[in-house]
Design a protein around this nucleic acid. Structure first.
Length: 451
RNA sequence: GGCGCCUUGGCGGAGUGGUUACGCAGCGGCCUGCAAAGCCGUUUACACCGGUUCGACUCCGGUAGGCGCCUCCA
């Protein structure tokens, strides 16, 4: 077990993860009002792989990724589509699960729904009211930001300098900074839950505070994460709610992933520059999508373009070629291979530097091809597994009889010097989806399909 | 305006006070009947200006440009 450290958004410093206790990780998942795009997939991939890495190092990691299925956006989208908001939320939750399933990374250990956490949410709000950190106003309940002195510590903001741009007249809030914990049901909203304050629904941030403490073995969480666009106000508000109510920190480390960008702009539904995850999976395959997402450091923005996905396909193909040539090599890893694996793991332990790890992988790949390292296949398999790319080690099987017969025919033609016939057969094989590769050991067939 | 962050070779993208990141693409070569795959080589990379230093792409200060958040957002 090596020391794994992560840069913490709140302190700006790298913090080691405590190996002696269970590592609870809570990452904010999507609000389900439409199909998710590649940008939404990034935290899913990052936190899935990071917890996978922690486990492989012997940490007792547990990953929770919630689904926010109650939200203003859902009402809006449902109204626009002419369907019930509950139906839309259910449909989009199912789509989210199906889309992320296709990434082939398995599921988080728990995926709680806001709609199934109403009881704990109400309890938490009641606690906050009791402690004078929240107040009811006309069926709504608001968190009193001024009652929480540390407000702004995560996002490095001073409440006094926040411009809410909202005049006080007629607002149910006592202070423009306050935010809703509970919203009374409004006209046009087709779902509601009973509460001590009347029918309504939770505000945006409270569901995560409730789900986080439900899922963790007590606060603080080891790591709380999500996209960097959630730092303020979402995570700041979560901290205020949870810490005011419980008197302990919400999380030891705040881990935020950077945005996927197109044309130097954040990919977002409101910008309209999105690329759906399912579309990327259809077109390029899951390995390409995962490979693309691990090609940049999780904390930095990552430029998206279809070229990036095509590049990932090419990169993956090179790895597959290695296994086609050397996959069956049963040699024990030599020191070069083992040292490379150490560096690979060191890179991941150092703020989960996947591009650095990928560089190690390719460095080893090159040296294996050059014959400078042996017993590389099992090491490479382990590396790929840690990046969620283990399927690249699977070499295609089941070359059909027809193709094999054609290949033999071609060999005969080549041996007889009839290269025109040999090339005709090669073209024919290409039509059947096979690429012919000659080597000193004879010819072999490789599937032509992408990714 | 406030807070946070960024500016690396054709593109993507790491990193370090002094040595080739890595990948993709291109070009040349080896291999091949020709290709493909693989290998080798290759295209004077670190926004700009100062400072610290024996030495800075890497530290400090400033300039310019860009991005994110401050409203829903992974």
């Amino acid at each position: 077990m090596r020391e794994v450290s992560v840069k913490d958004t709140a302190s700006g410093e790298r913090k080691p993860i405590d190996p002696g206790v269970p590592v609870s990780i809570y990452a904010c998942g999507p609000t389900v009002y439409s199909r998710i795009h590649i940008g939404n997939a990034r935290p899913f991939v990052v936190f899935s792989l990071f917890s996978r890495f922690l486990r492989s190092e012997g940490y007792d990691a547990r990953l929770v990724v919630n689904v926010t299925d109650i939200n203003d956006k859902i009402y809006e989208a449902a109204t626009a589509a002419g369907v019930g908001s509950e139906d839309l939320a259910k449909e989009m939750t199912a789509a989210y699960l199906a889309d992320t399933d296709r990434l082939g990374l398995g599921r988080p250990d728990s995926e709680p729904l806001a709609s199934e956490t109403i009881g704990p949410i109400i309890d938490l709000i009641e606690d906050l009211i009791e402690k004078d950190n929240a107040y009811e106003s006309g069926g709504d309940v608001y968190f009193s930001v001024r009652s929480f002195p540390d407000y702004g510590s995560l996002s490095h903001r001073d409440p006094d300098e926040m411009d809410q741009g909202e005049p006080d007249d007629g607002s149910p809030k006592r202070d423009p900074l306050d935010f809703a914990l509970w919203k009374a049901q409004k006209e046009g909203e087709d779902t509601s839950w009973d509460s001590p304050w009347g029918p309504g629904r939770p505000g945006w941030h409270i569901e995560c505070s409730a789900m986080a403490e439900q899922e963790a073995d007590g606060l603080p969480l080891a790591i709380h994460g999500g996209g960097s666009d959630l730092v303020f106000p979402h995570h700041e508000n979560e901290i205020a709610q949870s810490e005011a109510a419980r008197g302990v920190p919400l999380a030891g480390i705040w881990m935020h992933n950077g945005m996927i960008e197109t044309d130097r702009e954040k990919m977002s539904k409101s910008e309209g520059n999105i690329f759906q995850l399912s579309k990327a999976l259809d077109r390029y395959g899951s390995e390409a999508v995962v490979s693309f997402l691990v090609s940049g450091h999780y904390r930095q923005p990552l430029a998206f373009g279809e070229e990036g996905l095509e590049e990932a396909v090419a990169r993956n193909e090179r790895i597959r070629n290695f296994f086609r040539e050397a996959g069956a090599d049963g040699a024990e890893p030599d020191s070069a291979a083992l040292e490379s694996l150490e560096r690979f793991r060191d890179a991941l332990a150092d703020d989960f530097n996947t591009p650095q790890a990928l560089a190690e992988l390719f460095d080893l790949l090159r040296r294996a091809n050059q014959g400078e390292a042996s017993g590389v296949a099992p090491v490479m398999r382990e590396m790929l597994g840690l990046l969620g790319l283990e399927r690249l080690a699977e070499v295609e099987e089941g070359v059909d009889e027809e193709a094999l017969a054609l290949l033999e025919e071609r060999e005969t033609a080549r041996a007889g010097g009839d290269f025109e016939q040999a090339d005709r057969i090669r073209d024919r094989l290409a039509e059947l989806g096979w690429e012919v590769r000659d080597s000193q050991d004879g010819a072999s067939l490789v599937r032509l399909n992408r990714s």
